[in-house]
């Protein structure tokens, strides 16, 4: 029964393969600009950096291959401490952004309606209409010793003299949270939006209080958004340069400032590249760990968010 059918089947397969080839070609054509962009803008510079980082300076304009830039970085406790400090502060700032952003996102997604919703969303977006530099200067005007907040506190009689609120880790945190809030709120709103109100009501109806409903229903539902937002915000914090440099105190060294000073102040591109690579590997590692711990995949979170 089957035998006579086979030639017909294979005959039909040939044009189908041709069609597939044509589709593949058109896919390659469509994909080519993107691949080129990725290669030129991301891959090639990274590889270049990597090779630079393996160059050891022997004398003026003489270089050799070797790991000295890395051993120097890890041999100098100042640099390692700065890296650890930057990672820890970035994680803290990410967590704080989540804690502050979650209620905002919940309000936008579930409670606010119509105009208020748009307004709230816009107000999250508003800071991004000006450059980061202007935003940071705004905070400097508010937090400095002769600034708005200090005067307000004095005016209210809460403090005796002027207080310096700038140049410390808290100021850096405030700046980081402010700068990255939107990137937390947007993925959260989009996942919370898809949460059926009935699930929340059912959570209450079956005996849960607000905390239980949040913990067992809302947060598990929002997990992809939480992870996506946290990854984006963490990367932004880790890679931020302006905010920690301008708001930070004399002790608030950020790792990116180290990279900057290696590249720009020291003209030591080799060691700057090594610093950059260490930062890249560190952040990738932490994101990977976070994804593993939360049982999410990159495509399932960033892709969705």
């Amino acid at each position: 029964m089957n035998a006579p059918l086979n030639p017909a089947a294979s005959g039909a397969a040939a044009p189908r393969e041709e069609g597939a080839a044509a589709r593949r070609l058109s896919f390659i054509l469509v994909f080519a600009p993107f691949a080129l962009w990725i290669a030129l803008v991301i891959l090639v510079p990274q590889l270049n950096l990597f090779f630079l980082s393996l160059r050891e300076k022997v004398g003026p304009q003489v270089y050799a291959l070797g790991p000295r830039n890395y051993t120097e970085l890890f041999g100098e406790s100042v640099y390692v401490l700065t890296l650890v400090r930057t990672v820890v502060m970035s994680l803290l700032a990410t967590f704080a952004t989540l804690i502050i952003g979650f209620p905002i996102a919940y309000y936008i997604a579930k409670i606010a309606r119509g105009r208020a919703r748009t307004m709230l969303f816009m107000s999250c977006l508003l800071p991004f209409w000006v450059s980061e530099l202007v935003r940071v200067f705004g905070w400097m005007l508010i937090l400095r010793e002769t600034g708005l907040l200090s005067r307000l506190l004095q005016g209210l009689g809460l403090v005796d003299g002027p207080v310096e609120l700038l140049y410390n880790d808290v100021a850096v945190m405030v700046g980081l949270i402010y700068t990255s809030m939107l990137f937390m709120v947007v993925p959260l709103v989009s996942t919370l939006d898809s949460l059926d109100d009935a699930l929340v009501e059912a959570g209450y109806d079956l005996g849960g209080n607000g905390f239980v409903v949040l913990w067992e229903i809302v947060i598990p539902h929002a997990k992809p958004g939480i992870v996506a937002g946290a990854i984006i915000v963490f990367m932004l914090n880790l890679g931020n340069y302006l905010t920690p440099t301008l708001l930070g105190g004399k002790n608030s060294q950020w790792f990116t400032a180290q990279i900057y000073s290696q590249f720009i102040t020291r003209f030591n591109w080799e060691s700057g590249s090594a610093f950059g690579f260490v930062l890249l590997v560190t952040s990738s590692l932490i994101v990977w760990l976070a994804l593993r711990a939360s049982g999410q995949t990159l495509s399932g979170t960033i892709g969705k968010g």
Binding site: A198, A202, E216
Partner: peptide, 8 residues
């Protein structure tokens, strides 16, 4: 109406 079973 749509049962609201918890998918998580």
């Amino acid at each position: 109406q749509h049962l609201a079973l918890f998918p998580m």
